[in-house]
Every structure is written in structure tokens, then in C-alpha cells.
């Protein structure tokens, strides 16, 4: 490759104006064996960069085991259970008047009992109203 072209590329390389393709051209040039003597001092720069790009990691990547699918299942199951539980409770509350019926029945019972009590009480007061007959007859006699 002509010296002038490489020299020009080098100049724009140091100005940060080369494209990736041009930089690859430079790397290839300096990798080759026929580098111009006046440019040979730049060879380590480009060779170093291409060598650095080949370095690989020796470490292993350890990721925590995933239990996501299980958890997803459990979540849905738990939600369903709760939903069924709540729904069952609500529906049974509407349908189940067992307690309410009991309460109503006992209310009726106690009402009846109250009525009986008050009827008897009224009977008592009616008979009690005759009591003043004694007073009038007594007054008649004693006077």
C-alpha cells in the first residue's frame, strides 16, 4: 500500500476523523510485514489494539437458579383459592338465612311471648277496674 495513503490515514486517525473501515485498513497495514521504516514506530499501537481485542474472559458466570415458573403457578393458585374463599363466603351469606331465620324465629317467639304477656296484663287491668265497685258500695253502706 502506498506510503502517502497510509500517512494521510494516520494523520486523520490521530485527529479522530477516520472511519472504522479506515482504521481496519491501518491495522491491516501495520500487521503486514512491509511497513515503511518511517512508520514502524506506530506498529505497536495498532498491533496492541488488535491483540487486546482478542483477550477473553476466563471467569465463569454464575446466575442464581430461576424458580419463576413455580412461583407464577403458586401465585395464581393462591389467588384462585382466596377468590373462591371470598366468593363462597359472600354467596353463602346471601343464601344462608339459617342464622337469620333462627334470629327471625326467635324474634317471632319473643314477640308472641310479649303479646301474651301484654294480653294477660290487660286482662288483669280490666278486672282491676271492677275494684272501685267495692268503694262505691262501701260508701253507700257506711254513709
Amino acid at each position: 500500500m502506498e506510503y502517502n495513503k497510509i500517512k494521510g490515514l494516520l494523520d486523520s486517525y490521530f485527529e479522530g476523523n477516520t472511519t472504522l473501515a479506515e482504521e481496519q485498513l491501518l491495522r491491516d497495514y501495520f500487521k503486514s510485514s512491509n511497513v515503511d521504516l518511517s512508520l514502524v514506530q506506530f506498529a505497536p499501537l495498532f498491533n496492541g489494539m488488535s491483540q487486546a481485542a482478542q483477550e477473553v474472559s476466563s471467569g465463569m458466570i454464575v446466575l442464581p437458579n430461576e424458580q419463576k415458573p413455580n412461583r407464577w403457578w403458586i401465585g395464581i393458585a393462591a389467588m384462585l383459592t382466596i377468590a373462591v374463599g371470598v366468593a363462597g363466603f359472600m354467596f353463602s351469606n346471601i343464601g344462608l338465612s339459617q342464622e337469620e331465620e333462627q334470629a327471625l324465629a326467635s324474634l317471632k317467639e319473643s314477640k308472641k311471648a310479649m303479646m301474651m304477656l301484654s294480653q294477660n296484663l290487660n286482662k288483669g287491668t280490666q278486672t282491676l277496674s271492677l275494684a272501685h265497685q267495692f268503694e262505691t258500695t262501701k260508701n253507700k253502706v257506711i254513709k
Binding site: A43, P44, Q51, Q54, E55, V56
Partner: peptide
């Protein structure tokens, strides 16, 4: 150091770059 790195830095010029 691993071999590759040793090879890289065996080249004095390259070592200097780093």
C-alpha cells in the same frame, strides 16, 4: 498472567502502549 497476555506484553512496544 495467562499465556495470551504474556504473549502480548512480550512485545515491548505493545506493552508500552498499554
Amino acid at each position: 498472567r495467562d499465556n495470551l497476555e504474556a504473549k502480548i506484553e512480550a512485545d515491548d512496544g505493545v506493552a508500552l502502549v498499554f
